[in-house]
Amino acid sequence: MKHIEVCLTPALLPLYDLKGSVVVVIDIFRATSSISYGIDNGADAIIPVASVEECLSYQGNGYLLGAERNGEVVNGFDFGNSPFSYTRELVEGKTLVLTTTNGTHAINVSKNADEIVIGSFLNLSAVCEYLVKQNKNIFLLCSGWKNKVNLEDTLFAGAVVNKLKDKFDALCDSSVLAEDLYLAAQSDLHEYMKKTSHSERLKKLGIEKDIAFCLNVDLIHSVPVIKEGKIVKSE
């Protein structure tokens, strides 16, 4: 039987071997939620880049450029990683270039994986169904906050473990921890997420609506994957 592992922060990634695994990158507040929503709303592709400078290098070539640091849109960019910047009216038929504090970092350090999938509560069931079809080991990478563990990404990892543990061996203690946390929170995710440090950061920025939106479960059915350095809708 294939196995499932949880990595609670990219800082721990050197301890793991990603070969032979499908990596699910998780950044609930807000990068992977926004990416999933944008791909579902018809964006042709989203190019994840590591730095603001690299993002700027795409300027003037017909791309939409987004940059976020510390929860805020970087000066000079039209958008960051709020899901409300990824509506169909704004992104359909377009290619976006995006850099964020945590999510795009996690994507970029996962490049040795067989495949990279973008996960969020918005597409939880679709991601789980996709993973079962791939029939490979699963590696759930929580983006965390600046390489530190966070609750929201761990909760999502626990939700995936809970859905798939009958089909995959959950071999690591972090999988058990993540599932136990999810089981404690699942009856009211919105209430539990009030405990998270990042939700407090976003509230101070006046964007509580982003938090609420990112906790919608199974709002969409698309599964974004990485193909040749670009995030696209899986076939």
Rank of each mutant, 00 (worst) to 15 (best):
K2M: 13
H3V: 01
I4R: 06
V6Y: 08
L15I: 01
G20Q: 07
V22P: 05
V24G: 08
V25I: 05
S33E: 04
S34H: 08
I39T: 01
I46C: 09
I46T: 08
V49H: 02
A50W: 08
E54R: 04
G60W: 08
E68V: 01
G71H: 06
F79D: 00
G80C: 02
S82H: 10
P83H: 07
F84Q: 04
Y86L: 11
V91E: 03
E92M: 09
K94I: 04
V97R: 04
T101Y: 03
T101P: 11
T104L: 06
T104G: 04
A106Y: 13
I107R: 03
S110I: 07
E115C: 06
V117E: 01
V117Y: 08
L122C: 11
S125A: 15
C128K: 02
Y130M: 12
L131S: 11
Q134N: 09
F139E: 10
C142W: 02
N147L: 14
K148P: 09
N150Y: 11
T154L: 15
F156R: 04
A159V: 07
A159W: 07
L164R: 08
F168M: 04
C172V: 11
S174D: 15
D180P: 07
Y182H: 01
L183D: 11
K194G: 12
E200L: 03
R201L: 11
L205W: 12
L205I: 10
A212V: 11
F213L: 10
C214F: 00
L219V: 00
S222T: 07
P224C: 00
K230T: 11
S234P: 09
